[in-house]
Design a protein around this nucleic acid. Structure first.
Lengths: 339, 339
DNA sequence: CTGAAAGCGCTTACAG
DNA sequence: CTGAAAGCGCTTACAG
């Protein structure tokens, strides 16, 4: 059972042509039962499986999906991959994962690398670098070449393609409204820079919720943190220098950081300070107290994106359909960090 | 700039042969400067890049690495992928990720799917199902076909191949010794079933540390949890019904669960109860108090595994070298949950 | 019922 | 300096 066996080898073994072997293995009615039997038996015994690369070249499709994500170690994006992988495998596709590491350049290189025939389509979420730069030529180029792209979560209006996002604005709006309804007045916001599409939307949701409830937005209570896993100094400044009875963090990391800093200052959640985060991940469950969060349904986003992409690849009807933007509903998961 | 352009199209455009175009684009000395110039200019203008699939078929190598992991949403394995991806991209390889979801059957299917020519080699960690079943024929088969495999973290003696693991025994030994040195006497262990290689080794490290310090192992203080993200009832039982002044969890999730349950019972860490986990991930940092853990160096494992695999694929000297087992050193990261 | 031929996109040893 | 041919592994329309 050394080395993979090929049609050629089987054909030589029985002194027939490669075509005959190929057809016999596909159980073609063109071939005699007897020939089929011996060839099939032999192939089975030797674990023959057609070579994927040869099939890809022949069929002009690879059955590979290219995934480009900013990072993968944290809950949201890893759950997205989990969702994509499940649906893809189910439909007979493999998943090639590239990580842009929040860098524009790596995102471009990754796309170009995969676009040279390795995959049939892309699922991607913009890196911070790309959102900052607002340069999407690499994505447009790939789309121009006829390769479908599905953007998820961090998307842009500048590119026309299928998209899967959550209702960032509404999710934030609901969270902040909940804080207000439970009597909080001085609600701080820990967000990302405005060039980040999701940070921007969540910030807008926060503002709108305050306005709709007759609370004036106090810009001193809003901080925007560049590093997704940093910001502790700014947050500490915020909590030390201002009266804050609630914090809405646009990521679960920001929320838990705020909670820990508040705890160090002797404040306890939810009594002294209410906390809500975004992304219902491990952090939210493991923190003490556990965190109320806006769930982001990463797996659902991944599955939906893979579904859209594969439909476009396979279903002839889908080919010329207009692009859609699927909006996954978020929900507020109430835990111990709020009353 | 529609559709990808091929050598054939370029050759037609200039009425030359495909061979000439191919050579011209490789800047072959066989071709005249003038021809090279015009062809290269045209190719550049049209963003010509050779088709990866065609190259794969021709070269009999795909430049793809197949990765099969039990899951990916939690810190350890996602950091492993991050490490693999970084090294792989650096060396010009892509990474195809499959998730076995802890199931033997899925692991087998994934391997067979990728082994049909899609990849040049595997990096894998055993699913719980496989460890339980102790059936490794799918891995041996792939190796027999001449495809290199690197096993990481959850490995087995039954398969001969390169391996990258951490010093599970020693890491556990050091953690428990640290608890003993800080004066703890009743140290509970929350582990996995014994068929899990890493759980088993960590359990042994725990036992040995107690023995070496003249503390008798009390089997009542040892629980083995099947579900990696469950076990709260058993842990509660343990803490309620026994005197426990320290807990060593073989995962960070087990450790934080124990801590939260202890807190609910009115005990506080580290004063009443010391806690140490395994895997230095987000949970450990985000919990309150933050968790002392045995760091597992996921990215380092990933990088090392990718390095071993690529070396075996590329370096002719490596081909017949004996298999190696790289042991990554763990370290005890001290935080607030211990004194 | 079986096989030769063309083709997917590319490379390269060999002729001319 | 250029091109025809063979080949990577497979499929399929077409001949015989």
């Amino acid at each position: 059972m050394r080395q993979k066996i090929t049609l050629k080898e089987i054909s030589r073994r029985f002194n027939v042509s490669i075509s005959t072997v190929s057809k016999a293995l596909k159980d073609s009615p063109e071939i005699s039962e007897k020939t089929k039997e011996i060839i099939q038996a032999f192939a089975k015994e030797h674990h023959y499986k057609p070579n994927n690369i040869a099939l890809s070249l022949k069929n002009q499709k690879t059955k590979n999906l290219g995934i480009i994500l900013p990072e993968i170690v944290h809950y949201f994006f890893s759950s997205v991959i989990t969702g994509i992988e499940r649906l893809a495998t189910e439909k007979g596709y493999n998943v090639i994962v590239c990580i842009s590491n929040e860098s524009f350049d790596k995102e471009v290189i990754n796309m170009q690398m995969l676009a040279n025939g390795s995959i049939d389509g892309f699922i991607m979420s913009l890196s911070m670098g790309t959102e900052n730069k607002q340069d999407f030529h690499h994505i447009k180029e790939v789309i121009n070449q006829g390769m479908p792209v599905v953007m998820i979560d961090r998307v842009t209006d500048q590119v026309e393609c299928d998209k899967v996002i959550i209702d960032d604005f509404q999710g934030a709006y609901n969270a902040v409204t909940y804080l207000i309804e439970s009597g909080r007045k001085n609600i701080a916001l820990i967000s990302m820079p405005d060039y980040m599409s999701v940070g921007n939307l969540r910030t807008q949701g926060y503002r709108k919720a305050l306005e709709d409830n007759g609370i004036e937005v106090d810009d001193n209570l809003i901080v925007k943190v560049e590093d997704p896993y940093g910001g502790s100094e700014v947050i500490e400044d915020l909590l030390v220098n201002h009266t804050v009875d609630a914090v809405f963090g646009v990521t679960e990391f920001f929320a838990v950081s705020a909670m820990k800093i508040a705890q160090k200052m002797g404040k306890s959640a939810p009594e002294d300070i209410s906390i809500i985060g975004f992304t219902d991940g491990i952090i939210s469950i493991s923190s003490s107290p556990s965190l109320t969060t806006v769930s982001q349904g990463g797996e659902e986003i991944g599955e939906k994106a893979a579904d859209l992409l594969i439909k476009r690849l396979e279903d002839p009807d889908y080919e010329n359909r207009p692009f859609v933007t699927e909006i996954i509903k978020s929900s507020l998961v109430k835990r111990e960090s709020t009353l």
